[in-house]
């Protein structure tokens, strides 16, 4: 394509959202934990990374660490915060967990606004330290960033895939399907939930710096609930519970959004177009759920008969794709 900047941007964003959606899939898809606090944990990771690595801002903590230590610290901090949030809220039932995590996310945003000494308040930070830049700047770094985000996508995919095929992944899905039966097999549900929530938090903390490298600012309003709902939309679109579905969902959603953005309308219709955008995504979801309730790729197809066979990662991709193809075929035939 001639317009490389455009594709660089879109592909990077697709990568970040793919990774986030896969993480949500572990929690919500397999673990049945309906987390509406993604933006909150993402904010914790973002602020931790930024505060520890930023230079040139007058805040009370700014040690100016190198980016890789910042990433590790962001992972650790998000994990710790997930632990502290999870401890009380994971005891609650599913619906309450959803509300509590949502509320916590808002609390973190308010904290970012009010804790000005450390977060620089509503102004936030800009011209951030780029993660793993190896001295590259400008387009060179942005090309690297694209590579880095997709390396992360692959890492997260491999990790979640390994997890899903392990006894841990099965315990998660068992707990989601039938908690009393899972308990009767000695599964310690409260701990499993907490572990998973922390695990997801750590990964989100690790993904956050790469989103920031794309956005280049940190401000409280970046972490509004919009972010959470985008990830959820991608998950539902791609298929809750499937391994590769989250990637498909995120890619499809970002592409769809970009296509809508590219529609050339007169200024007077612009506002309408943007207002219609969430509506169009809603419609897309309704259509999908009508014709394919499990999303683009279903959980059954992901596990199902193949679960026993030792299949390769490549096999996993192709299996997912062929499932996607049949789904598409079925949709088109209607």
């Amino acid at each position: 394509m001639s317009n490389w900047s455009f594709w660089l941007n879109v592909l990077t964003l697709m990568g970040v959202y793919s990774a986030l959606t896969m993480v949500l899939n572990v929690e919500a898809g397999w673990g049945g934990m309906w987390d509406l606090g993604i933006a909150g944990l993402f904010a914790v990771g973002s602020y931790t990374y930024t505060i520890l690595t930023i230079t040139g801002f007058e805040v009370s903590i700014a040690p100016g660490w190198p980016s890789w230590t910042g990433i590790l610290a962001a992972m650790a901090m998000t994990g710790i915060v997930a632990f502290l949030v999870g401890l009380p809220s994971l005891r609650a039932r599913r619906e309450y967990f959803l509300i509590i995590t949502f509320a916590f996310a808002e609390v973190f945003r308010q904290l970012a606004i009010n804790w000005g000494d450390i977060t620089n308040g509503t102004v936030g930070f800009n011209t951030l330290t780029k993660p793993l830049s190896f001295g590259l700047t400008g387009d060179d770094y942005r090309n690297l960033l694209l590579g880095l985000t997709w390396v992360i996508v692959i890492l997260v995919f491999v990790l979640t895939r390994r997890l899903s095929r392990s006894s841990y992944g099965r315990a998660l899905r068992a707990m989601r399907d039938n908690e009393p039966a899972a308990v009767s097999l000695g599964i310690r549900v409260s701990r499993l939930r907490l572990q998973t929530f922390v695990f997801a938090g750590v990964l989100m903390g690790g993904i956050a710096p790469f989103y920031l490298a794309w956005l280049d600012i940190v401000q409280p309003h970046v972490f509004e609930s919009q972010l959470t709902f985008t990830v959820w939309t991608a998950l539902v679109l791609g298929g809750i519970g499937s391994r590769f579905g989250p990637v498909m969902g995120a890619v499809a959603l970002i592409l769809f959004t970009e296509l809508i953005e590219r529609i050339d309308v007169p200024l007077s219709l612009r506002q309408l177009l943007v207002a219609v955008h969430p509506l169009a995504i809603g419609l897309l979801l309704v259509l999908l759920l009508r014709f394919r309730p499990q999303g683009i790729i279903s959980e059954n197809k992901t596990f199902g008969a193949r679960s026993r066979a030792e299949i390769s990662i490549l096999g996993d991709f192709t299996a997912s794709f062929s499932d996607f193809k049949t789904a598409l075929g079925r949709l088109l035939r209607r």
Binding site: S2, N143, L144, L145
Partner: peptide, 11 residues
């Protein structure tokens, strides 16, 4: 994947 990222030429 890294190659894909690295090789991409800005134009």
């Amino acid at each position: 994947a890294s190659l894909l990222g690295g090789l991409a030429i800005s134009c």
